[in-house]
């Protein structure tokens, strides 16, 4: 109880900040990934070159990346959000691309044969069918981002990482746990929320079309 009196307020603020980072980063990442995924799925020949290239980004350690951005953008929340958003892009992008490409070719022909324009085919047939896969990617990105957002505190931008880093630095286990548990719970809750949304919007029993 002593701990709560001492850190309770700070912890709540940290959870809030952490959540906002995740929300902002994943939202931006989602929009970018979806757009990029749709564009790449129109030109699979380019996608075959572009996707491995983009995946290389994924292998750059988050610390390096956030550090580089810190140098150019400074100590503002945008630094953390941009860095996290870039990481959030790839799982969604890959699942969007795979989901769109795995739509049955006969359905594309049926859509064309029914006189759908390319846009109508995309929005009324392809995207709805790729949706389970896209949401799978979204969930993956969200869960990753919750854990990566810990890095924000490295450049003094708060979030739950602050507790963890201070805990490590001062050898205070209670602080480490106080940072780790809420971020774990946040990841689980968000993942459950996304699953529930997925269930709601994919009414028809249909096969999972993803590598999620």
């Amino acid at each position: 109880m002593n701990f709560w009196n001492l850190y309770g307020h700070k912890l709540l603020v940290a959870i809030g900040v952490h959540f906002l980072y995740v929300l902002a980063a994943v939202s931006i990442g989602f929009v970018v990934a979806l757009t990029l995924g749709i564009l790449l799925s129109r030109v699979p020949s380019i996608a075959k070159m572009a996707l491995p290239l983009i995946s290389v980004f994924q292998t750059i350690p988050g610390v390096v990346f956030i550090g580089l951005l810190f140098l150019s953008l400074g100590m503002v929340p945008a630094t953390a959000i941009v860095a996290l958003a870039i990481y959030a892009v790839f799982p969604i992008l890959k699942n969007t691309y795979v989901g769109l490409l795995s739509v049955d070719k006969s359905l594309l022909e049926a859509a064309r044969g029914c006189g759908m324009s390319k846009m109508q085919s995309l929005f009324e047939v392809e995207l709805p069918l790729a949706l389970p896969s896209i949401i799978g990617g979204l969930r993956m990105s969200t869960v990753y981002t919750v854990s990566w957002a810990v890095l924000a505190s490295m450049i003094g931008l708060g979030g739950l990482g602050e507790f963890i880093y201070i805990g490590i630095a001062t050898n205070n286990n209670a602080l480490i746990v106080a940072g780790a548990i809420p971020s774990g719970i946040m990841a689980i809750l968000l993942s459950l929320l996304i699953d529930a949304v997925k269930k709601r919007i994919t009414h028809a029993p249909q096969k999972e079309a993803s590598a999620a």
Binding site: L107, E109, A110, A204
Partner: peptide, 19 residues
């Protein structure tokens, strides 16, 4: 696109939109 809307089309794979 207009032409296809004035011509019915049925394929072997049926091609009903599952969504």
């Amino acid at each position: 696109v207009k032409l296809r809307r004035s011509i019915g089309y049925v394929i072997q794979q049926i091609g009903l939109f599952p969504n």
